[in-house]
Computed example of a mutant assay.
Amino acid sequence: MEKDARIYVAGHKGLVGSAIVRNLQDRGFHHLVCRTHDELDLTDYQKVGEFFQSENIDYVFLAAAKVGGILANSQYPAEFIKENLMIEINVIDWSYKTGVRKLLFLGSTCIYPRMAEQPIRESELLNGTLEPTNEAYALAKITGIKMCESYNKQYGTNYISVMPTNLYGPNDNYNQVTSHVLPALVRKFYDAKRSGDPYVTVWGTGRPKREFLHSDDLADACIYLMDHYDGPDIVNIGVGKELTIRELAERIKKIIGYTGEIRFDTSKPDGTPRKMIDVSKLNDLGWKATISLDQGLERTYREFLLNLNEIVDR
């Protein structure tokens, strides 16, 4: 991408989008185009069209999405499938209609079958049954992938799709109802320490295994692929290492300095038993993650404390 290119980062206030903006700014890109939800509702086809027609966008990072953890996905499946489909259709279609040169679509590893062979290769897409607790979100993301593929095939566009593993980092969502597991645990242990609670309850058995990637590493990978990858197939983005939810809880407990007990509520769902992705394709393309989980957790907790007033008010 040229330094004077007009780059639209959809979802620039979120975990992924804000990391992409930071990385682009650090690299010297100075024509970043960003809009808040209040300024541009991406579910409104007409408004999205007016935006693209007026801004002359060269490149798009489609990081905008309605996201959440097991609880949010289970309670609001209609919103998850509807809003994500509308965002994808509007942004991808108007990117084509206005001649955007390249688009990167952010998917999710939840697109893969619940019982996919581990580590999960890109070829596992549509090779089995999805995890029921986030099926609506996964189906929306799969549609976005296939929409990019279809536009490439029919119209000759250059739209690539990447599948990041579980993410964390600055501007994460720490709301106990809608957040993913890592920020939810940070918030739980912090609140328990502050309140002097004797124990923290964690959903499920603690046995499922997960892989975690810092959002700054994801942003770096996305920009690398935007510059170096034009292939037709999806690309996994992750670290290739995993740990159990119990181990994650213990690490967060230690970093926060909580001295109470961890209890697991086995009446609550575990979600997918294991979800580590194969990152050999990404590594072969020349990119590897550099932020270890311990480093990332330390940074995350420092940032959490620095932004505590804003987080608690959400």
Rank of each mutant, 00 (worst) to 15 (best):
L139C: 11
L167H: 11
A140R: 10
K82E: 13
W287Q: 12
E88M: 14
M226F: 02
I142M: 13
L139G: 03
G169T: 09
L293I: 01
E88L: 14
K47A: 14
L106Y: 07
G144F: 05
I237D: 10
G156T: 04
P183V: 04
N90P: 09
F264T: 00
I223H: 09
R187M: 13
I89D: 08
L106R: 02
K13G: 15
H180M: 14
L104F: 05
L15E: 00
L297A: 13
E131W: 02
G14Y: 07
R314D: 12
L297E: 14
V48K: 09
N158A: 15
D270G: 11
K66L: 12
S179R: 08
I81N: 00
T143Q: 12
C148W: 07
Q118H: 03
L306A: 15
F304K: 09
V21P: 03
V202W: 00
H180R: 13
T109S: 13
G296Q: 04
P170Y: 03
R251N: 00
G169C: 10
L139A: 06
T98V: 08
V177W: 08
R114A: 09
A136Q: 00
V200M: 00
E242M: 06
Y229G: 01
H12Q: 02
A65S: 15
I245Q: 12
E39C: 06
F304H: 05
R314S: 11
I111G: 07
R22I: 01
N236L: 03
V181K: 09
I20Y: 08
R210F: 03
E117H: 07
L125E: 11
E310R: 12
K209M: 09
V177P: 02
N283W: 06
I142V: 13
R299I: 01
E131H: 05
S292W: 06
D227H: 11
N90G: 06
I277W: 08
V48S: 10
R35N: 09
C110K: 04
G69D: 05
I145T: 06
H30W: 02
T157F: 05
D172C: 09
